[in-house]
Amino acid sequence: MTTRRGRRPAGSGVQLTFEVIAETLREQIRSGGLKPGDALPTQAMLMREFGASSLTVQKAMTLLKQDGSAVSRPGKGAFVAHHAHHHDGADDLDSPEATAPVGGTTARVEALERALVDAVEQLADLRARVEALETGGG
């Protein structure tokens, strides 16, 4: 039986590198070494630590997002997700869309649309503040 690169025979107990990376990070989360809201190591750090390619690290991060262990914040990085037992409503990492597993394209598009709406609202608020400062103070 031949296997393609990156695949393992069914029933094999051997973990692939991306699974090892994901499990290592999960264990750090379970042990408290990484707490909800903490930044996960960067892609470059994980590539060096595990001698892995960027694609391998990305696959590991996808696993963590799918199981709800991690959440990405565009432009900021990946963070340990907040879970119900640690929910205090303090920041946007507690929102359902931030901790929801990425289930597919539709869920991803909906999450991006919500983020876009939030960004547009923030821009409108900032624009109003600038206009108020310019007319009132300047």
Rank of each mutant, 00 (worst) to 15 (best):
M1L: 08
M1Q: 08
M1D: 06
T2P: 07
T3G: 02
R4E: 13
R5I: 12
G6V: 02
R7K: 14
R8V: 15
P9N: 08
P9V: 09
A10P: 14
A10W: 07
G11E: 08
S12L: 10
V14M: 10
Q15G: 01
L16W: 02
T17C: 13
F18H: 15
E19V: 01
E19H: 02
I21D: 00
I21E: 00
I21W: 00
A22Q: 07
A22G: 08
E23F: 07
L25D: 04
R26V: 10
E27R: 14
R30D: 10
R30V: 10
S31M: 09
S31W: 02
S31F: 09
G32A: 13
G37V: 08
L40S: 06
P41D: 00
P41F: 00
M45V: 10
M45Y: 05
L46E: 00
R48F: 04
E49W: 01
F50R: 10
F50E: 04
A52Q: 05
L55F: 04
L55M: 06
L55H: 11
T56V: 05
V57T: 03
K59C: 09
A60Y: 00
M61G: 00
T62N: 07
T62E: 11
L63E: 07
L64V: 03
K65S: 03
K65E: 04
A70R: 05
S72Q: 13
G75L: 03
K76I: 12
K76S: 12
G77K: 02
G77W: 09
A78W: 02
F79Q: 01
F79M: 02
A81R: 05
A81W: 09
H83V: 14
H86Y: 03
H87R: 13
G89C: 09
G89Y: 07
L93H: 07
L93N: 07
D94Y: 14
D94N: 14
D94V: 11
S95W: 11
P96S: 09
A98Q: 08
A98H: 04
P101K: 06
P101G: 15
P101W: 09
V102G: 11
G103D: 12
G104Y: 06
T106P: 00
T106E: 15
T106F: 11
A107P: 02
A111H: 09
L112N: 01
L116I: 13
V117N: 01
A119N: 10
A119H: 13
Q122Y: 01
L123T: 09
D125V: 04
R129N: 07
E131G: 13
A132E: 14
L133D: 12
G136Y: 03
G136F: 02
G137K: 06
G137F: 09
G138K: 11
